[in-house]
């Protein structure tokens, strides 16, 4: 039942479910009626307040149910609705329900950097050329190789007097483009904030709210941003952290708000986004349990045939090497212990007089002995030799 691992525990690509990312999020409206209070609209009176919170209200029944802009008596007639999603999401659709005759010109924008910069996702207008300098969207999506902001027909007035703005990322992408294999499409659907710019109201009044008929006023409800919490294929859900920020519940050795990097010890190969076919999990470095840190080396990774590029750092327990797989100078491998054993490397313990050095054979533990000296640590005279009084030549031939 773990979406990120198969029955055998092997990693597999996983994604959070489709949600309304705008639900319960604060909406900033550049215009709200009732500030200051007017005849039918008073932001200080709940019965006559048409706040922007009504656009993303989480539930229950309220009256009124619609946000309403202030009366717009003269140009500019732009009113902007901005919602921060609190985290990167991968968009699927955006919709906005109008409570009165829908505007005849709307621009939809997104930000990927929490509102610092904006790019258009699409336009909706009866005069694409005049309003946005664009041709109407082709019936079968953009002609180019990648997705682009197209100009769609303006929202149509429905029998109840309202209207629906509906944008689907699919409509602005060339057919056949696949999210797994297209970095361009991945970038296109990525957003942290959504902005709806209502640029030209219909010259008609409200037919759904109980308010008086007022020209030059926008009124809407149910701003929905359908999308998936962006976790790059390495999490099946997003959670609130201790500071109340939405973050991915990262798996596959990844970390970060979007699982966008490998965890510190998981750098045996470069980070990659998971796909439906390949998990591209970050792999832990192979350090035989003797190191807590490692670094990635691209040169070694290439030389290994793109299999392994991790280099262990600060090998402990007297081990050394890229994988802490051999003993450091002055130590040798104890054949009776596993390579991961804390005591896998034993001190050479070369005799201070009998040995010619302190470094022994790393496999056998044999110290380099002076002439006539024998033993693993060079601590005895060889047969036919006897101990002398000279520390330089500790064993001499027996007379």
């Amino acid at each position: 039942t773990d979406p990120c691992h198969d029955e055998g525990g092997a990693p597999r690509g996983c994604v959070p479910g489709l949600v309304n990312a705008a639900l319960g999020r604060e909406v900033l409206a550049s215009s709200i009626c009732g500030q200051p209070p007017k005849q039918a609209c008073d932001s200080s009176d709940a019965r006559r307040a048409h706040s922007a919170a009504l656009l993303t209200f989480t539930g229950g029944t309220t009256s009124p149910v619609c946000w309403r802009s202030d009366w717009l008596m003269q140009a500019p007639l732009n009113v902007t609705l901005t919602v921060s999603l609190g985290k990167t999401f991968e968009l699927v659709f955006v919709s906005l329900r109008f409570c009165s005759t829908p505007p005849t010109s709307v621009a939809l924008l997104k930000s990927q950097d929490h509102g610092r910069s904006w790019v258009p996702l699409g336009f909706f207008s009866s005069c694409c050329d005049l309003d946005y300098g664009r041709l109407p969207a082709p019936a079968n999506g953009p002609a180019g190789p990648g997705p682009e902001a197209l100009c769609f027909p303006e929202p149509q007035t429905q029998p109840d007097g309202g209207g629906l703005l509906a944008f689907s990322v699919q409509d602005s992408s060339p057919p056949g483009l696949d999210l797994d294999s297209s970095p361009v499409l991945q970038d296109w659907v990525t957003a942290t904030d959504i902005q709806v710019v209502l640029t030209r109201p219909a010259m008609l009044g409200d037919t759904r709210d109980s308010e008086a008929m007022v020209p030059y006023s926008y009124s809407a409800t149910e701003l929905q941003v359908g999308g998936r919490c962006k976790c790059n294929g390495h999490a099946s859900r997003c959670l609130l952290d201790t500071q109340g920020h939405l973050i991915c519940d990262c798996q596959h050795g990844t970390e970060g708000p979007d699982c966008g990097r490998c965890k510190p010890f998981y750098c045996d190969r470069p980070w990659q986004r998971a796909t439906a076919r390949e998990a591209h999990a970050c792999l832990a470095c192979s350090c035989n349990g003797h190191a807590r840190r490692c670094r990635f080396n691209m040169e070694l990774y290439r030389l290994s045939g793109r299999r392994s590029g991790g280099v262990c750092l600060n090998c402990r327990h007297n081990t050394a090497g890229r994988h802490c797989h051999y003993c450091r100078e002055g130590f040798y491998r104890d054949p009776g212990r596993a390579p991961s054993d804390r005591h896998a490397c034993r001190a050479c313990d070369c005799h201070p007089v009998g040995a010619a050095g302190k470094t022994c054979n790393q496999t056998t533990g044999q110290c380099p002995c002076k002439d006539g000296v024998t033993g693993l640590t060079c601590n005895r005279c060889a047969p036919g030799f006897q101990q002398s009084r000279s520390p330089v030549a500790p064993c001499v031939k027996t007379p």
Partner: peptide, 23 residues
């Protein structure tokens, strides 16, 4: 034949004081 281990007490360090290991 197992030879005895080197006896450190038998060595004369007079001319090799700088080589004498710390005990």
């Amino acid at each position: 034949e197992v030879m005895p281990t080197l006896d450190m007490a038998l060595f004369d360090w007079t001319d090799y004081e700088d080589l004498k290991p710390e005990v």
